[in-house]
Structures are given as C-alpha cells and as structure tokens.
Design a protein around this nucleic acid. Structure first.
Length: 278
DNA sequence: CGGCCAACCTGTGCGC
DNA sequence: TGCGCACAGGTTGGCC
C-alpha cells in the first residue's frame, strides 16, 4: 500500500484519536512481523499517554509522555483502521496483528496480510540514531531537499534514475507509484543513468516530486486493492495516475501520441511513455 | 561502497 | 473447479 502520501494520510487520521490520549490496552497477537515485536511491547505502551504523532519517511512515530516512541511501518499491505467508541466492537479479523484500545474506548487496529510491516520502539531523544531511521535521506517536502542536494546525490550514481529515486537513502518516502508519476511529469526516461540526468532536469524534477506528493496527500493517497484511510474512506489519487498501471493505454500528455509501456527494473514494474520520456 | 537479486509473506487474477 | 504462475504500494542481507 503505502508510500509517503498514504502514510501521511494514515497519520493525520490517527492524530485526533491518539494525541493527548492514554492507551489503556495495547496488544500484539503475533511474535513478529517483518522483525520481532520487542519484549515488553504491550506493557510499555499500555497505560502510556500519547503526546504526538509524527511521520518520518514511511514510518509513523507514536511518541509517548515518558519518552517512549513506537516506530510503525505499513510494509506493502499494512492498513490501520479506527473503530470509534460507540461503534460495535468488531471481532478480531484475519491478519489483525496489533490493537490499541484508548481511554476513550476507541479501538485502533493494524492489519497486515503479508506481514512486511513492523512495529518496534525506541526513545524520543535518540530515535534519530535508530538503525531504521539513521540512514534515511531528507524528507522530500522539507527544506533540505533542494536541487543542489539532489544533484549531488545523482551525479555519482550509475544506476537508473528510477532505481535511484527509490533508494530511501537518497530521498525519503518515494515508492514505485510516485517515482513513476514524477518521472512521467518530468519527461525523464526511467532507465536513464542517474549521473546522466542534466542539471536543468534536476531543477525541474525536484518541484515535480513535491507536487506529485502534495497532490496525492490532498487526495487522501491512492487506493489500490482495498487500501483505505483510517476512517474507511478511500483515497482517490489513483484517478490521477498518468503512468502507473496504465500499460497499453494512451499517454495523456498534451499532443502526445505515445502509449504507456511497462518494463521491469530491479524486479519492479516501471510505467512510462517512450515518446515524452525520451 | 555501488549495484543487483532473492527473500521475506499472503492474496488475487488470469490462462489453461 | 482447480492448478500453476505472475504480480502486488517495501526493505534488506548477501553476493559480486
């Protein structure tokens, strides 16, 4: 499911039911997801009060008043849902792995069929040194992500620009969909070597990355399969896809007669227009 | 270190 | 109806 816009959407949905709220009962029903769920996980969060939610790259950080912070990643298939106080308490469904019951009797459920997600904990004041966090590149919507930075990271890379933009050490939070979309909007061929992308193209690409992400966040993310916002509402950015998933369909660029092609790079599908992404 | 692939999992859709 | 295969929004360990 989740790239930066989907994770941001989930976090924004969770904030009003979690921030400032005590967690009465936190439960983990599996010993591990992508990595082990740490010992004492339930005990450390049960009874703790959430101060603030943050997002770093594709991680949701749940900060608590005693300095504890949960690091949650949704993997490929992770979803979070809220069952509000007053709604009927649902039975635990298949692949429901983590639940948070709040003092207001809201139930927050993390469901992840493929179990590529994870949840661990750390301390708020040392989280920037945590193994999962420390090597992640700048936030693409933040001030430190500028053309000088991106140019400096691309100019030494011999791998394709598509693959390079997927590298979380280069820039945080991009995934397969939004890289395809950003390259399509930028008119850059996904197989072009990163170090062959011209400076003026980097100047164009950078704000386009921001625009794609901001557009997607404004749309509540993209709904493939059954991804839903925490409210159960669907995101709708998928209706704005210009490349991703459009193999064999007409390119939607002005006056372009091209057809979207699908290729495989690093074992992942890439969609692009061979005419307007030369 | 850079670059690439396989592996981690389950579910779904398609061709036969 | 069933089987086998390809594919899916991510990350990373191991190998050259």
């Amino acid at each position: 499911m989740p790239e930066l816009p989907e994770v941001e959407t989930v976090m924004r949905g969770l904030a009003p039911v979690m921030e400032g709220v005590r967690l009465d009962k936190v439960r983990a029903f599996v010993p591990k997801l992508r990595v082990d769920i740490p010992d004492q996980f339930e005990e450390r969060f049960s009874g703790n009060r959430v101060t603030q939610l943050r997002r770093r790259s594709k991680y949701i950080l749940i900060e608590c008043e005693d300095g504890l912070v949960a690091i949650l990643h949704l993997g490929m298939s992770g979803r979070v849902s809220i069952h509000a106080n007053g709604s009927e308490k649902p039975p635990r469904e298949k692949h429901d792995h983590i639940t948070f019951l709040t003092e207001r009797d809201d139930l927050i459920v993390f469901n992840d069929p493929r179990r590529f997600g994870l949840i661990v904990f750390s301390d708020t004041d040392t989280i920037q040194d945590h193994a999962l966090i420390k090597d992640i590149g700048p936030e693409p919507l933040g001030n430190s992500f500028d053309a000088d930075y991106l140019w400096s990271r691309l100019k030494t890379r011999k791998s394709p620009i598509k693959t390079t933009l997927l590298d979380q050490k280069v820039v945080a939070g991009l995934g397969n969909i939004y890289v395809c979309e950003a390259l399509w909007r930028s008119g850059i061929h996904p197989q072009r070597r990163a170090d062959k992308v011209k400076r003026h193209e980097v100047e164009k690409l950078l704000p386009i990355i921001r625009d794609v992400l901001n557009d997607a966040i404004a749309a509540g993310g993209s709904t493939l399969k059954d991804y839903a916002q925490v409210s159960g509402e669907l995101g709708y950015f998928q209706h704005n896809f210009r490349a991703y998933g459009r193999e064999g369909e007409a390119c939607l660029a002005q006056k372009c007669s091209g057809t979207i092609e699908r290729i495989v790079q690093s074992n992942r599908s890439t969609f692009f227009c061979p005419i307007c992404q030369p």
